[in-house]
Design a protein around this nucleic acid. Structure first.
Lengths: 186, 186
DNA sequence: TCACAACGTATCGAATCGATACTTAATTTA
DNA sequence: TAAATTAAGTATCGATTCGATACGTTGTGA
């Protein structure tokens, strides 16, 4: 009997916590804030809202609103009102915020470890994880938060990416970001 | 560009949180307490102490002591003084505690999803995770919390398992449990 | 014998998180 | 068009967690 997948996830979680605690500067920052900041750095313009973060992190919007307020006070994100819908506020990382994300110890260590596995094992690992998450999220009726380009609504129009759900053209750079409206192509 | 390993871990974490929140009974139980309980159900008799949980979870011993106190009040664990060293207290799950662990939604859902991957992909996934964690933990000088039977101190004496570190015989059933003193055989 | 380290507990304060209520804006219904 | 309903976001309050600090006990080594 080997350890279960759940056990590995738990262990990785503990390591993530340890790394953050060991970081002199970031140890005072709640982990949820860093998770939210990371999310905002990889999500598209349909998903960079309070509700987007709420759905992604699995918390309540009141809690998330406070965490985002703290991120704004650190000047790691700034708010931008939506032009169409006046209820919506877009949350964008500042340059300082992006710098924090890129210097996260956890990301760097894991990235390096994954690379040491070699391309073949890396492919197997992320491939299996992708499939696993797809199954789970579909089965649980959860939002999948997949990459825009892998969405069933993703189309081409005049050679440019286009969203069939919102009926809007998409910035080319956004097609690799994750979206809260994402649905698997299958 | 696909999503990074870190992104998958973050997503899984969010799902774990969501599942726990959706569980009517367990939603009031702090996640750390469940993690500690789970750990105590899969660790050996060298590791079922406050310091063992502390190292595993990456928290401070004061915090962990409080969480364990709460677990004891729920009657999910009980304490047993060490016979040799009077400073040490062993923490063991009660029958009720083990029942909670086995009914964790997260474990069940992930287990089921992994099985749907098929034996080959499952092997690839856990194999890659194992290797990844070994590398990271060795590189970071962290305790690996591996299974007893995969430890460099694991020996056989008169056909029975024996720990070369503590110089004590081991219960056969313990060789698949995880140990805080574990060091990879390589 | 004495100093020091290790395991565990207790206390206190800061701060997170969820629940609830509220405001504003958009959408649906009559 | 007006009213009702839904949705996005914020504010407040209280419970609870977590880290820091200090303390007591036991083991170890000089």
């Amino acid at each position: 009997m080997a350890l279960s997948f759940f056990d590995y996830v738990e262990r990785i979680n503990s390591l993530l916590r340890s790394w953050q605690r060991d970081d002199a500067e970031l140890s005072v920052v709640p982990a949820v804030q860093l998770s939210a900041l990371r999310y905002l750095s990889i999500c598209n313009h349909y998903s960079d809202t309070v509700m987007g973060v709420t759905d992604y992190l699995g918390l309540t919007k009141g809690t998330v609103s406070q965490s985002l307020k703290a991120l704004e006070e650190r000047q790691w994100i700034y708010k931008e009102p939506d032009l169409q819908d006046k209820r919506i506020v877009h949350l964008k990382p500042t340059a300082a915020g992006l710098a924090v994300v890129q210097q996260l110890v956890a990301v760097q260590v894991l990235q390096q470890a994954v690379q040491q596995l070699g391309p073949e094992l890396e492919q197997q690992l992320t491939g299996a994880l992708h499939q696993l998450l797809s199954q789970v999220q579909q089965q649980q009726q959860r939002k999948s938060f997949g990459q825009c380009k892998s969405c069933r609504f993703h189309q081409q129009q005049d050679g440019l990416p286009f969203c069939g759900l919102t009926q809007q053209p998409l910035p080319v750079a956004s097609t690799e970001l994750i979206c809260r409206e994402h649905q698997d192509a299958a």
